[in-house]
Design a protein around this nucleic acid. Structure first.
Length: 217
DNA sequence: CAGTAGCG
DNA sequence: AAGT
């Protein structure tokens, strides 16, 4: 934890909203370090570009993705997995910026999950009209660690459902700087993002960037 | 509702 | 099945 980050997060006065048992929405939690986060995303994508992946069914995801950290989440026609190598650059994923680790750890702590040590950060780029259908994060070996999700840029509607795909999801509006943490009994909750509404964000333009931190093993 | 590669 |  750098002193600067500690200070800026300590100065922030995010509100907390419990959205489910073991799931919390920290409104504005990342807002004080927005410029540093965006600069870090630019550095990451300079090495490992955003790309639209193809699912096992042969369909292209609308959301463009990249990763940083020891392992990155990827999908292709063979399935879903974490891989230490970016198949596009054929190099290791960019390392996880200390700022990212610290933010994720601190958010997890606020959410009731101390000592969160993510080894993977999926970086998602949503443009107007793109979405992520309801799914579970279950490619990680360590399901005791929470998921930490950071929103930047355009607002989105986060869908948070139950343990069955058929459970009707609740809808939460996520804006720039919001962080969602979920784990424990909701670790495998179905979740997704509704099609992004068009708009213009002062720092990111017509896009939403989402950082999702996981401990994969 | 559907298709793949890889593994046992 | 993070897809249509």
């Amino acid at each position: 934890m750098t002193a600067d980050l500690f200070d800026s997060l300590a100065e922030a006065q995010p509100s907390r909203e419990d959205i489910a048992d073991g799931a919390v929405l920290l409104r504005g939690f990342a807002g004080t370090i927005e410029h540093e986060l965006i600069a870090a995303v630019r550095a990451i994508t300079a090495q490992s570009s955003f790309r639209q992946m193809t699912t096992p069914g042969g369909y292209q995801m609308s959301v463009a993705m990249t990763n940083c950290g020891e392992r990155g989440w990827i999908t292709d026609h063979t399935g879903y997995r974490y891989d230490p190598i970016d198949p596009l650059s054929e190099q290791p994923w960019p390392s996880m910026p200390p700022l990212f680790r610290d933010l994720a750890r601190r958010a997890a702590e606020e959410g009731g999950f101390p000592s969160f040590a993510p080894d993977a950060c999926l970086v998602n780029r949503y443009e107007p009209g793109t979405r992520l259908s309801l799914h579970q994060d279950k490619d990680e070996l360590d399901l005791s660690a929470p998921i930490v999700s950071v929103s930047l840029g355009l607002p989105a509607t986060f869908l948070f459902g139950g343990m069955a795909r058929s459970d009707k999801p609740r809808r939460f509006r996520l804006v720039h700087g919001d962080v969602v943490v979920w784990g424990g009994v909701t670790r495998l909750a179905y979740h997704g993002v509704a099609p992004l509404a068009d708009g213009e964000h002062a720092l990111l333009g017509r896009q939403r960037i989402n950082l999702t931190f996981r401990k994969t093993r």
